[in-house]
Design a protein around this nucleic acid. Structure first.
Lengths: 215, 215
DNA sequence: ACCTGAACACCGTTCAAGT
DNA sequence: ACCTGAACACCGTTCAAGT
């Protein structure tokens, strides 16, 4: 594989190139195809050459997920309607993660070394919660709940466990619909715990425009 | 390792013995220690001997998780108070899964070949939802949402991502508290969608006795 | 600093035997 | 049917070189 290159010559790899090739590999061959050796082969490089640009495979996966998280749409801070902004942010995160569902379980099994994009999303969410009038002890709970709920649902969109009885596997569209229902319940519950909130979060799920089903 | 045993003699393994040894291995050495070869070594057996009792490693993991799920307390069907039964069932599931949090991400990454215990839990949950007065299109959504929420939270109890800013890692007790808050929001939201429900699910989270923090 | 060659210490799984 | 011995086709990672 390694195109005629003697020990001293370099291939011109970069961290970004490795990351980008990893994303392609993941998209094409799924999670099973994402190995250091396959990645090296795709880059026409010896397997150990990758370690000049990536500390380890787990570091690669962490970087990969944060890279994906960078695609989440963080619209104008929605100062006027934080409730709607909250709903939009979670659904956008859900959409992006579903597009790379293989990555989530892999990320779950590691120490969550959170990248800058993940941190940014957490901060934006917390900010929206506060603006919606949710006071501090509850806001932290709500942040955790929303994150876990969204990521958990994204991880499950492919294979849902035990939906009871002999029912067939729910489609991606059904999963998205269930996700949206549950998100509405959560946002309503958060808001109902604090009736002095400036606007009911429940409002968001009703005014949100329909998204097209994923390809 | 293999105690003097010639090719023809048997070691007396059973499916249950393999499964039990796998649980011990998981508890002692974590997820990294759960390999077919380590498992064989612990049973004083050649690695390939396991394949007489287990089809593959993924089948082992599936069986392992369903075995764990068998520990979930399914109390008297709570005919009188389905709302409280629902809350109790989810918290029990959460507690059990948190005790084996390593298993969940591994389970997520596979095709969810659902064992009998998982199916039973799904059916019991759905039954409770119906008894609580939740009509059918919503009940399926609620079932999915509750399952995903509970399993997702269990998977995250060790490493929570992006709780925003530079806050330190939440403790297990904090995670449990957040889980319970979110569960209350969900149950309240489900019940509020159907005001004719025989009893507000919200009621459950208020009458539920305190559980001791996990060891 | 970046890359190669070779190797180490593992994996899950299969195949041909033995009783 | 259950187990061993040996092997296959992989892994991630390290170490000593080369330029």
């Amino acid at each position: 594989m390694d195109h005629g290159r003697s020990p001293g010559h370099r291939a011109g790899l970069t961290h970004a190139a490795v990351l980008s090739a990893a994303r392609e590999l993941l998209a094409e061959h799924g999670i099973a195809g994402l190995t250091m050796r396959m990645l090296a082969a795709r880059l026409d490089v010896a397997p150990n050459a990758l370690y000049s640009h990536v500390a380890s495979k787990t570091a690669l996966v962490d970087a990969l997920l944060d890279d994906v998280l960078g695609e989440v749409a963080v619209l104008t801070p929605s100062v006027e309607n934080p409730a709607l902004g909250l709903h939009q942010l979670m659904t956008s995160t859900y959409d992006v993660l579903v597009g790379h569902a293989d990555l989530v379980p892999l990320y779950l099994s590691r120490q969550g070394a959170h990248g800058p994009n993940a941190l940014r999303l957490g901060e934006v969410t917390l900010d929206l919660l506060r603006r919606a009038g949710v006071p501090e002890p509850t806001a932290s709970d709500a942040l955790r709940v929303l994150i876990v709920y969204t990521i958990g649902f994204a991880a499950f969109t492919r294979h849902l466990p035990a939906t009871g009885g002999s029912e067939r596997r729910p489609s991606a569209a059904e999963m998205q619909s269930s996700f949206e229902h549950g998100l509405g319940w959560l946002l309503a519950g958060i808001s109902d715990d604090h009736p002095d909130a400036q606007s009911h979060l429940r409002f968001a799920s009703e005014t949100e425009p329909k998204r097209p089903a994923r390809k």
